[in-house]
Design a protein around this nucleic acid. Structure first.
Lengths: 338, 338
DNA sequence: TTGAAAGCGCTAACAG
DNA sequence: CTGTTAGCGCTTTCAA
């Protein structure tokens, strides 16, 4: 005997109610071919014994488990939490439950290896399908259903939802350039993410297409946290020929800009993500942040896609492009003109 | 055949490497009694086949799974997220992985019934133990290990960690009363939570013990969200004889107070949780918020307790009281004195 | 050092 | 309508 305590099983229920395990199983699964009598008796016993089915055993036998998995390397970042929120919302509206799997820390895992492991772990075992966030591999050794959010690889073999990062960045730049800005700083983030690469590309291409030189000293790369962005923003703001606008490529980085500006005594309105300022008080808000705020929405959509796939809905797209919105909250009233 | 696709199993590995399943299993579990030769061969095959063990099947046979569960009714609230963060931190430092289980929405579940179901679902099946947040029942039909955070019932049969809610509230009130405040508003929260009840009790007792009448019109009950707290705070601030201080019993509620004050044109420093103000600009900050900020810490401790229990550490306490700190950030410079 | 075989708890044929 | 039975993929005796 390995386990000191062995939980109540379907066998106990069967014995106690004087029927066979299959009958109990039928009751459990709401099959119609059970007499009302038996059904009631079994249900009573289940109740009084406090029986609950063993997830593991059940998963081994039946295909449908009404459970979807969400795999994230780390649960501590705002990004992860936003995704969870979105997925959660979709789950709440469905008949599915959600299982979030994490190893606690990105650094603890060697991404590629581990994410493959977790996908098949969950997918082949106890869930009907999984959503995986920012996977780095392009293929998974699983026959189960899978949807990914913001994959890091270029042409993954699985369905995914992504933001229109490049287009969003271009739109943001078009706006700033339209305001007359010519020196625009850029705060980037985790370069291992496709989204990050694409945003930066949008920035570069925009400048290039406007026939402008790219000043590499205006480009700084953090890690999408405000903590890192703050000193970088300061650095940008204190060079001899500072930018008149800063394109913070995600929300957290924008926060960093605010903090930096605050410490330097430059006033900026509260809710900027993209700031264009000329050392006075002007600012432009471009909701490139949408790329981030829409993360929650991406989670929502991914969950819906997955549920659709599980339900064998034939209309589920293989690739979903979330268009980033351009939302201007504060227009730049004063712009340094070249 | 039910499933069209059947994943790679231990059997496939055995066949491909020309050994028996038991040998493969031994390799998988790092048993020492396997020849180096065989071990290497099997490992190679596992790698090339991309095999990963079936969680469900494994869980059925072996006791230890290096997996802990976190059960929360809803994942969308700051409270839940803070707990997760804390648990996650502890997990990251350990050899365990984390599985978060949620039904997406509190309202979707009939709490008591469902939480029992989920606990035994996870606990008897695939995890080594579970942490459950704010459970309403006092007993669980599980033989597995369990630690709870902020249980709603009075004398649960399982180990738990809780904040010293009552004492914290008393301390907060002592501070405010010491500043000379005599009309202190109170914004409460979800009354189904023990923590909520205890904070309010601390408030009432403090007033009573100071020989003061309790003005019920100064007590408003929200749901621990700023959205709800805001109009309540406004209501408090706009009565004819407004309070000179407000004791917001959680962080979110404090936020609501700020928002309300802002709209009413009353300036309050940024980081107040407990505000005492006299319609000028004074304020007292009492980190009663700790009760909330420490939530993350509670998650951390709960996880450590659980891990200790799993590892059969005999020193794990059955009840852990998290002392709430009294942190004063801004002292009240001007107080309306009676 | 290895293999054969017995289950873990459950579901799904297949017979009655 | 109900019971018998055969596994699901895995770990763990028990023999060899």
């Amino acid at each position: 005997m390995k386990r000191k305590y062995t939980a109540i099983t379907i066998n106990d229920v069967a014995k106690a109610s004087g029927v066979s395990v299959s009958t109990v199983s039928r009751v459990l699964n709401g099959k119609s071919d059970v007499s009302a009598d038996t059904q009631e008796r079994v249900l009573d016993v289940i109740d009084s014994l406090g029986y609950t089915s063993n997830l593991a055993a059940r998963s081994m036998r039946s295909f449908r488990r009404n459970l979807v998995g969400l795999i994230m390397p780390d649960i501590g970042y705002p990004f992860a939490i936003e995704v969870m929120r979105g997925v959660n919302r979709a789950i709440a509206e469905s008949e599915f439950d959600l299982l979030v799997y994490t190893t606690g820390d990105v650094r603890k895992a060697e991404s590629a290896k581990h994410e493959q492991k977790y996908v098949s772990l969950l997918n082949n075992s106890i869930t009907d399908g999984v959503i995986i966030v920012a996977p780095v591999v392009s293929e998974f050794p699983t026959n189960g259903l899978i949807v990914s959010i913001d994959p890091a690889t270029d042409n993954p073999s699985y369905p995914y939802v992504q933001a229109t990062n490049y287009e969003g960045a271009v739109e943001a730049m078009r706006y700033l350039l339209g305001l007359g800005h010519r020196r625009i700083g850029y705060i980037g983030g985790r370069t291992e993410l496709n989204s990050s690469v694409q945003r930066l590309e949008g920035y570069r291409d925009s400048l290039r297409d406007s026939g402008m030189d790219i000043d590499e000293s205006l480009i700084v790369i953090g890690d999408f946290t405000s903590k890192t962005a703050k000193p970088l923003a300061k650095q940008l703001l204190m060079i001899s020929d500072p930018p008149t606008a800063i394109f913070a490529s995600n929300d957290q980085s924008a926060m960093g800009v605010f903090e930096a500006a605050k410490e330097l005594g430059i006033h900026i309105p509260d809710d900027l993500s993209l700031v264009g300022f000329d050392n006075i008080i002007d600012s432009a808000y471009l909701n490139l942040t949408t790329i981030d705020q829409h993360i929650s929405e991406m989670g929502y959509i991914a969950a819906q896609m997955l549920i659709g796939m599980i339900n064998k809905d034939s209309l589920v797209p293989k690739i979903y492009n979330m268009k980033t919105n351009l939302v201007i909250r504060n227009s730049c009233k004063r712009v340094s003109v070249i």
